[in-house]
């Protein structure tokens, strides 16, 4: 019972840190993916009196990345159905030029407003529609949740680290005498700390296995049935199998640092 308790006291905080890292990785990728989708899907509408070029718009604002003209004939054919050919020609001649303008990155509403102002400085530009409010509100909420999660994970990481250090203190007490005796008889560090390393590495593997099990469950069961398009379509991009190697690496690094801390703080004979 004491044996299991001793291991759990180390495995659980380690798992908390690993789960925090994994959730952070997945959430970061999710927000990145969402952001990319927003950026790719977003265009502003520019209405000009005469045809414009991408180069010209870029001179007005460097964030402009793409320019796609909306076919005027198509607009006329849609809005002027049942009108004579001549009238259509007149409408076409009077119709301004419409463009979908893409940006180089995802920008906030203030930046969009600036682009709008920059473009409207040109007398050739009649109107710029940014659709700012509709597209930013969802992302703002998402970014806020991301920030909260980062704070929570950071806090959880710190608390878990304290728990690990506390458990290390217990280990230090439990193994101190043995390590000191071995040191007196000239045992090298690796031999003195051998048992600790074995226990800690074993615990690191167990913590990684349990965390990976949660990760695999989320990937193959929860995400697949979540009904969230992003999760279901980009399952493999969001939950990468290489994460398990990252988790194992972090777990091993943490336990090696922890063991070295115990070993070096146990030097010297207690009389």
């Amino acid at each position: 019972m004491k044996f299991i308790k001793n291991h759990l006291m180390f495995i659980l905080p380690l798992m908390a840190i690993l789960l925090g890292i994994e959730f952070y990785l997945v959430f970061d990728r999710t927000t990145d993916s969402y952001e990319k989708g927003l950026k790719e899907g977003y265009t502003m509408l520019v209405v000009a009196k005469k045809p414009v070029t991408l180069q010209k718009l870029r001179q007005l604002n460097p964030h402009i990345a793409t320019l796609e003209a909306i076919k005027r004939e198509q607009i006329v054919s849609e809005v002027a159905q049942g009108v004579s050919k001549q009238s259509k020609k007149e409408i076409l001649a009077a119709l301004p030029y419409f463009y979908n303008v893409g940006l180089d990155s995802y920008l906030g509403t203030a930046a969009l407003e600036k682009i709008k102002k920059d473009l409207e400085k040109d007398s050739n530009i009649k109107r710029v529609e940014t659709f700012g409010s509709s597209y930013s509100s969802a992302y703002r909420l998402f970014a806020f949740i991301k920030f909260l999660l980062k704070v929570f994970i950071g806090f959880m990481g710190i608390v878990s680290l304290f728990l690990i250090i506390k458990q290390m203190e217990i280990w230090k007490y439990a193994h101190r005498e043995r390590m000191q005796v071995m040191e007196i008889f000239g045992a090298p560090l690796m031999l003195r700390a051998g048992v600790l390393f074995k226990v800690a590495i074993f615990d690191a593997f167990i913590a990684t296995l349990l965390t990976s099990a949660v990760f695999l469950y989320v990937k193959f069961v929860w995400a697949a049935q979540s009904g969230i398009d992003l999760m279901m379509q980009k399952q493999d991009d969001l939950f990468k199998m290489t994460d398990m190697a990252i988790l194992l690496g972090v777990a091993l690094l943490l336990v090696i640092v922890a063991v070295y801390t115990v070993v070096f703080s146990s030097k010297g004979v207690q009389e």
Partner: peptide, 28 residues
């Protein structure tokens, strides 16, 4: 490793058997 040290409070490793304690210098 060329010294043998004996303490008043023995300083044996209590979680090891007597035989294992005795051969500690050989193990090292």
């Amino acid at each position: 490793t060329h010294m043998g040290i004996i303490f008043q409070d023995y300083k044996l490793i209590n979680e090891w058997t007597v035989a294992k304690n005795v051969v500690l210098p050989l193990m090292i």
